[in-house]
Design a protein around this nucleic acid. Structure first.
Length: 439
RNA sequence: GGCCCUAUCGUCUAACGGCUAGGACGGAUCCUUCUCAAGGAUCAAAUCAGAGUUCGAUUCUCUGUAGGGUCACCA
């Protein structure tokens, strides 16, 4: 019988903003459980009463909900004190732990703590990523496992909870690898089976160091939601840092990751978080979205006064220029989109193309107006406008002497989308009025 | 410092011990273009060093070097 059902867990502690590296740990636990038809547990490790805050827990809960990393069970460690106490008593009764007199050196330290009786032996454990690790636990001494019966510490609670929850695979960051030996010692003391370990390579910042709060290029995870990244893109990106399926495919959605993920192919060395690649991947994921979905999102990220018919027409122009939804907001804030709503202000010299005389420019603009007038409102589309204007432009010495002044009259900017697109967005009347004004 | 881990283009990575070390991001150049963006094409760019094993080493072994992690009454 398949009694060896896979159980994984991800166990963040709510003591600060959740960082992006944690997303990958959560993801790999999720993927491994799903592809083995197992159970994925989320456990909030809030045993540190001083530092744990419910708002931080709410933050990662919100994050996983957004990422669609659904867990099968949720536990809060502080709800399990009775269970932890039971084990502390048992360990003390059986001589695996003892009450120890201390001389406090820092404020808040107790005069009595509970220490683990270290058998001082070598521990060798297998690791799905790192192969095999041996640690001599003598170096650890009789480490503290609880401040007192009411305040168990991390190493103890992890081992007890993993055991009680039937966790079969411990997939976590490599910073925990050196801690594993002491957790195995505790397991042996309470008679818990040893889970299979997989220590993932660290995700590093540009300086090649472990991620911390003060990294500029790497933000707290929830910020990526606020910036309007796609959950699947973020997941895709995180998965590809430290793991690779081997082929040349780069774009994966969550079900594909579940199918292709292979924990034995996980890299051993740490990887740097590369925001440019995230942006590229996000754009690729956006392109895969249905048209309506793209339009809906772009409209939502536009300021309210732009959420109208003109806003809708701007969608293709905006889409070409963004990597993530937040860029839409930024474009609007920079004033890049104002030209679609108000006639631009500019000095008339700007209409001149190279050294074409002003009179000639004026003539070209007049010609453009008279030809465009022949198009009726309904046919005022990018294609038709382009046909009309190009017919005139191609007869000139260079197309620029028509296209530049037209584009400038419409946009008032040195750099902007092409005149046909702008004209089609602002409509026939506004186009003709702006051209007239330019003349 | 002790212990543990790691090492292929700037970055993420691919390569049963065997083609010219492949792909992607980013960069550069060109094409397309009045400009921007998008798109297309091309190019530059790596096996940390030194020994050893082998007909042959990015791949296996050792040493060195570099980087990272960890050594809490945090998790």
């Amino acid at each position: 019988m398949a009694e060896n059902k896979v159980v994984t867990r991800f166990a963040p502690s709510p003591t600060g903003h959740f960082h992006v590296g944690g997303i990958r740990s959560a993801l790999f636990n999720f993927l491994f459980a799903r592809q083995n038809k197992g159970t994925y547990i989320l456990r909030s490790e809030d045993t540190d009463k001083e530092r744990s805050k419910r708002e931080y827990e709410d933050e990662f809960l919100e994050l996983f909900d957004w990422l669609n990393l659904k867990y099968d069970m949720f536990f809060r460690q502080s709800d399990r004190l009775e269970i932890h106490q039971k084990y502390i008593k048992k360990m003390m009764d059986e001589g695996f732990a003892y009450l120890s007199k201390e001389t406090p050196t820092e404020e808040g330290q107790r005069e009595e703590v509970i220490r683990f009786k270290n058998p001082n032996k070598k521990i060798t454990f297998k690791d799905l990523v790192l192969e095999e690790i041996t640690v001599d636990t003598t170096d650890l001494g009789d480490f503290i496992i609880a401040r007192d019966i009411n305040e168990p510490l991390y190493h103890l609670t992890v081992v007890i909870d993993d055991f009680e929850m039937g966790v079969t695979h411990v997939i976590r960051g490599q910073e925990h690898a050196p801690n594993t030996a002491r957790q195995i010692l505790i397991q042996e003391a309470i008679g818990a089976p040893r889970p299979i370990y997989a220590h993932l390579p660290l995700i590093l910042n540009k300086e090649r160091a472990k991620l911390s709060k003060r990294d500029e290029s790497v933000l707290p995870a929830i910020e990526y939601k606020k910036l309007g990244y796609l959950p699947d893109a973020l997941l895709n990106f995180m998965a590809l840092n430290g793991w690779n399926p081997g082929g040349e495919q780069e774009i994966f959605n969550l079900p594909e990751l579940v199918e292709k993920f292979d924990i034995s192919k996980v890299q051993k060395g740490g990887g740097i978080f590369n925001p440019e690649k995230l942006d590229w991947l996000n754009k690729e994921h956006i392109k895969l979205l249905p048209k309506e979905e793209i339009e809906k999102n772009i409209l939502e990220w536009l300021p309210e006064n732009m959420q109208n018919e003109i806003g809708k027409k701007m969608v293709p122009v905006i889409l070409e220029r963004i990597n993530k939804w937040g860029d839409v907001k930024e474009m609007a804030e920079r004033g890049e989109l104002d030209l679609y709503f108000h006639p631009p202000q500019f000095s008339k010299e700007k209409l001149i193309f190279k050294n074409v005389p002003a009179e000639k420019i004026k003539e070209n603009l007049k010609l453009a107006i008279s030809e465009l007038e022949k198009l009726d409102e309904k046919n005022f589309t990018v294609e038709n406008i382009k046909d009309t204007l190009m017919k005139i432009a191609d007869k000139l010495e260079s197309r620029g002497e028509l296209l530049h002044p037209v584009r400038f009259a419409l946009s008032g900017k040195d750099q902007s989308p092409d005149p046909f697109t702008i004209a089609s967005i602002i409509g026939k009347n506004e186009t003709l009025s702006r051209l007239q004004k330019a003349i």
